[in-house]
């Protein structure tokens, strides 16, 4: 207990905790829609795009957010538009974008700074890199996500559940898809520092999948997902600190354990 109180007194840990809770909140909200719309892998694809964008920013000595946020937003919108218009599966488009972006990121890194600490931290996440700008951005992101959910809850649900009916009712489906793409891109870019490009998608997918298994309603899934996301983040972050693991990996480990327990519980209840 004393050890927990002691690490809570460190500024870097407080920043990481606040930033992580805010990102987990937003990731859980957007994860519900993405999972139900079969866009589960978009976080993974955008993570790779984010890595390429950050490699470019580091190579050009530019601020990482200023470069990565617009690039990832454009990629998110493009993935959604292309996968709908071409009739291709979203997973196929995401796989193509992800591998292409990762290759580009690695090439840029190889030609410039090499695979140094910065690149490693973005790949696997590190709470030590989280600064006050990240905290402010993550809180702003939470305000945007909660605001979007609060004001457009029913339309977001309708667009997720039955897009044709939403269109027939005169709802501008594209506008809501744009909002979903925007929030997803922001979650990915801001969450990358903590989780790493390779693991950021787990923050989006796991809470939604666990929540879906235990709820009958959309509202229930949203609340359960947020609760699971924040709880797993806090437990994962402390575990990672005490076990000396990369933060992202520690959080994913907790998700894996909870997923296994959740699956076992549902199977047992069906017996």
């Amino acid at each position: 207990m004393n050890e927990i109180m002691s690490i809570l007194s460190y500024t870097f840990f407080q920043r990481a905790l606040l930033c992580g809770i805010a990102i987990s909140f937003s990731a859980a909200l957007i994860g519900v829609i993405l999972t139900l719309k079969n866009y589960s892998m978009i976080g993974h694809g955008l993570g790779e795009v984010g890595f390429a964008a950050i490699a470019l920013a580091l190579a050009l000595n530019l601020p990482t957010y200023a470069v990565s946020i617009p690039i990832v937003i454009i990629a998110a919108i493009a993935i959604m538009i292309i996968s709908q218009k071409k009739g291709e599966g979203a997973d196929l488009i995401i796989a193509l974008v992800a591998s292409g972006a990762l290759a580009l990121g690695v090439i840029i890194t190889a030609f410039t700074s090499g695979f140094g600490t910065d690149a490693y931290n973005y790949m696997f996440g590190s709470i030590l890199t989280i600064g006050s700008a990240d905290v402010i951005l993550s809180i702003a992101l939470t305000v945007i996500s909660v605001g979007t959910y609060a004001f457009f809850y029913n339309r977001l649900f309708l667009v997720t559940f039955d897009e044709s009916y939403a269109k027939a009712r005169g709802i501008r489906v594209t506008l809501y898809q744009f909002l979903i793409a925007l929030i997803t891109a922001l979650v990915v870019v801001i969450g990358m520092r903590m989780m790493g490009t390779l693991l950021i998608s787990s923050l989006i997918i796991f809470p939604a999948i666990i929540a879906k298994r235990h709820t009958n309603s959309f509202k229930g899934m949203v609340f359960t997902s947020v609760f699971v996301s924040i709880a797993c983040f806090i437990i994962g972050m402390f575990s990672a600190y005490f076990l000396n693991l990369p933060t992202g990996a520690g959080i994913v480990l907790i998700y894996m354990i909870l997923s296994a327990l959740s699956l076992a519980t549902t199977k047992l209840l069906k017996l």
Binding site: F151, N154, R169
Partner: peptide, 9 residues
């Protein structure tokens, strides 16, 4: 979701 004011909140 079929209500008239299915937009907000």
């Amino acid at each position: 979701t079929g209500t008239q004011k299915h937009g907000k909140l």
